[in-house]
Structures are given as structure tokens and as C-alpha cells.
Measured scan of single mutants.
Amino acid sequence: VNVKKLKVSELKEELKKRRLSDKGLKAELMERLQAALDDEE
């Protein structure tokens, strides 16, 4: 998943799939999702 190419709605969906908070600004969502993806690898 390329975090930078996702829309806010898509970021929120990806975060929900991982049971993460989907609250906050786009930058925060991107950071949170990227951290989750880094952990998965």
C-alpha cells in the first residue's frame, strides 16, 4: 500500500481494518498507517 497515494477515506478504511484510530488530520492518518505497515513487514 502506498500511503501517500491514498485518499483520506481510504486511509480511514485501512486503519479500521487494523483496528486503529481513524481520527485526526490526513498527515496523522498517514503516519499511523505507515507505522502499522512498517510493523507488519
Rank of each mutant, 00 (worst) to 15 (best):
V1H: 00
L11N: 01
D22Q: 12
K26N: 05
G24K: 01
K5V: 11
S9Y: 09
E13W: 05
E31N: 15
Q34D: 08
E41I: 07
D39F: 05
L29A: 08
K17T: 07
K4M: 14
G24H: 02
A27W: 06
G24L: 00
M30A: 07
K5W: 05
E40Y: 02
A36Y: 06
R18E: 03
N2W: 10
L33F: 05
E41P: 12
E41Y: 05
E13C: 00
K23V: 14
M30C: 03
K7A: 14
K23Y: 06
V1Q: 05
E31F: 10
E14W: 02
A27C: 09
R19A: 13
G24W: 00
K5T: 12
E13N: 02
E14G: 02
E13A: 12
G24T: 00
K4Q: 14
E13T: 08
V3M: 02
A35M: 09
K26M: 14
E10R: 04
E31V: 08
L6P: 01
A35G: 13
V3H: 15
G24Q: 03
L11Y: 02
N2F: 10
K5M: 12
K26E: 15
K23H: 14
E10P: 00
L25N: 15
R19K: 12
E31G: 14
K23F: 13
S21G: 05
V3C: 10
K12A: 07
E41C: 15
N2T: 12
G24F: 01
K4N: 10
A27L: 11
D22E: 09
M30H: 02
L33P: 11
M30Y: 02
L6R: 00
S9M: 08
E13P: 00
E40L: 01
E41K: 10
R18W: 00
L29G: 11
L37G: 07
K23M: 12
L37F: 10
L37Y: 02
K26S: 13
D22G: 08
S9G: 11
Q34G: 10
G24A: 01
L25H: 14
D39G: 12
N2A: 10
D38C: 12
K4F: 09
L15D: 02
S21T: 08
L29I: 03
D22C: 13
L25K: 15
L20I: 15
K5Y: 11
D22P: 12
A27Y: 02
D39H: 07
R19Y: 02
L6K: 02
S21E: 09
M30W: 01
S9A: 10
K7S: 15
D38L: 04
M30D: 03
L20D: 03
V1E: 02
K26G: 08
Q34E: 10
R19P: 03
D22T: 14
S21N: 07
E10L: 04
N2S: 08
A27N: 12
V3L: 10
D39S: 12
L37V: 15
L29Y: 00
K5L: 11
N2E: 11
E10V: 06
E40K: 07
A27P: 14
L33R: 06
D38N: 04
V8H: 08
N2P: 07
L20H: 04
L6D: 01
S9D: 10
K7W: 04
V8W: 07
N2H: 13
